[in-house]
Design a protein around this nucleic acid. Structure first.
Length: 445
RNA sequence: CGGAGCGUGGCGCAGCCCGGUUAGCGCACCGGUCUGGGGGACCGGGGGUCGGAGGUUCAAAUCCUCUCGCUCCGACCA
């Protein structure tokens, strides 16, 4: 992508409404623009990141055996009256009336909707277990939206729903999602710690929140230091008992958010030098709630003896748009964002220091083509700008690798390759540059 | 929902208290010259319903009333 033709409105000054660093950087880097309180437009650069995050979530859901669907944003109030939540949900639910004066709502979540779909489509225990998910915009009319996309009113969420014949089977489904979440966040470079959580208005009694530790997190959290270094299970299918083993390993050590925190308990469970007290950003939340929705909505299947069995369910959310902000909170410096390669909007920023110079142009274009052929996304700064402006822009938007091509280096046949995260610079021949990047990015291609 | 604050060109701000030329500054933007490896210099430009409505006045960005929007602090949430 040529920067000279791209839409990347970067800002030098920080808009005053942005308080936390991720919000400031998303605005400055031209990723988002605010539409109204807690509602944002995603510009090209931001959208690329959102799509990358979404795709990682999707791949891990699919790997865990969930099937993707897409439910509407607008739902009928009748469905919510059936579950009894229409009145319970409160002012946070945006209620709308259509032209026929029918009560509608902009979905804050989809338990009712998916349960209805599933109930009408499945009749036998032989068709269980199943897990369906979608990645769709939600609206929750928060009293006080803030922190940019981290706490918007409109936000993109992955929500999955499991359907099982028994509570035991439901636990297996829960564990699958638990492990899928560990993998999902890891792929984004994040260490997300599962913590015992309140179940809130979703209901149920088994629930974990996944929190990324960051100074600007909204929740105070307490956990055992070893959790930060806990290894992930190998890829590949796990048996039910292996799954349980992984979940046990992650949940046997103390980890709690403020709500569930108990000082005496914490100090008894964790030796002093292992006590971590930090701020966390909630990026995922999983629940097992049994028959809370299947019962009122009549979601049943026929069992092996012909009896009707009410389905056991859970729901599993990932804040996709929130993650874009959360990742920046975790990875930035004074100069700007530092994207993990897996979610970076482009892998490489190619800086032509003398656009218009025949040699520089040719060298850049050749590298651009070669990297593109290898599946590497390149943002090519071919603008006629000062070197300093180009460096600053590239650091701000945080692409993991920069290749700097100028007349000086070209004289000795070399490009400069800069690692955004470490600041390390290498002088390499064009061939070595391409080889170096291909190898460095092999994991995410 | 309680408390506080802010709305002036794309961004950051000054002007307002104490009404009075053509509403100003920095950045960004356009043209030009010189430059050219960390947001360069100079010259010349363009862009503003001063959030909105009403009122006071000879005269309103400035005073008054109402209203809308946004932000921050607290109680709640992917």
């Amino acid at each position: 992508m040529r920067l000279s033709t791209y839409f990347l409105p970067v800002m030098r000054d920080t808009p005053k409404e942005a308080e936390i660093v991720s919000h400031q950087l998303m605005l400055r880097a031209g990723m988002i623009r605010q539409s109204s309180a807690g509602i944002y437009s995603w510009l090209p650069l931001g959208l690329r990141v959102l799509k990358k995050i979404e795709q990682i979530v999707r791949e891990e859901q699919n790997r865990a055996g969930a099937h993707e669907v897409l439910m509407p944003t607008i739902q009928s109030a009748d469905l919510w009256r059936e579950s009894g939540r229409y009145d319970d949900y409160g002012a946070e639910m945006l209620r709308i009336t259509d032209r026929h004066d029918r009560d509608m709502l902009y979905g804050p979540t989809n338990e009712e909707q998916i349960t209805q779909i599933f109930r009408d489509g499945v009749k036998s225990y032989k068709e269980l277990p199943r897990n369906l998910y979608h990645i769709q915009w939600k609206f929750r009319d928060e009293v006080r939206p803030r922190f940019g996309v981290m706490r918007g009113r409109e936000f993109l969420m992955k929500d999955a729903y499991s359907f099982d014949i028994s509570a035991e089977a439901g636990t297996v489904s829960y564990n699958k999602m638990f492990v899928a979440y560990l993998r999902t966040f890891k792929r984004m470079g994040l260490t997300a710690i599962p913590m015992i959580a309140e179940t809130g208005p979703i209901g149920g009694n088994l629930s974990h929140e996944f929190l990324v530790l960051a100074k600007t997190g909204e929740s105070q959290v307490y956990c055992h230091a070893d959790l930060l270094a806990e290894a992930l299970p190998d890829e590949g299918d796990l048996t039910d008992s292996e799954l349980q083993g992984v979940v046990d390993r992650w949940t046997e050590r103390y980890a709690a958010t403020e709500d569930k925190y108990d000082q005496a308990e914490f100090e008894a469970a964790v030796p002093e030098d292992k006590r971590v007290s930090a701020r966390g950003i909630e990026v995922g939340h999983i629940f097992f709630f049994g028959t809370k929705y299947s019962e009122p909505l009549g979601c049943k299947v026929q069992g092996p003896n012909g009896e009707m069995i009410t389905i056991q369910s859970g729901s599993y959310g990932v804040g996709v748009s929130r993650l874009a902000g959360g990742i920046i909170e975790a990875f930035h410096d004074d100069d700007g964002i530092i994207w993990p390669a897996s979610v970076a909007p482009f892998h490489v920023g190619l800086i032509n220091l003398k656009a218009g110079d025949a040699d520089c142009d040719a060298a850049c274009e050749m590298l651009d083509r070669e990297l593109a052929a290898a599946g590497i996304d390149v943002l090519y700064d071919d603008r006629d700008e000062r070197a300093g402006a180009k460096f600053s822009t590239m650091d701000l938007i945080g692409l993991p690798w920069q290749v700097i091509v100028g007349p000086k280096g070209l004289k000795s046949g070399e490009f400069e390759v800069k690692n955004r995260a470490t600041g390390e610079r290498l002088s390499l021949s064009p061939q070595a540059t391409a080889a170096h990047l291909k190898s460095a990015l092999a994991d995410v291609l």
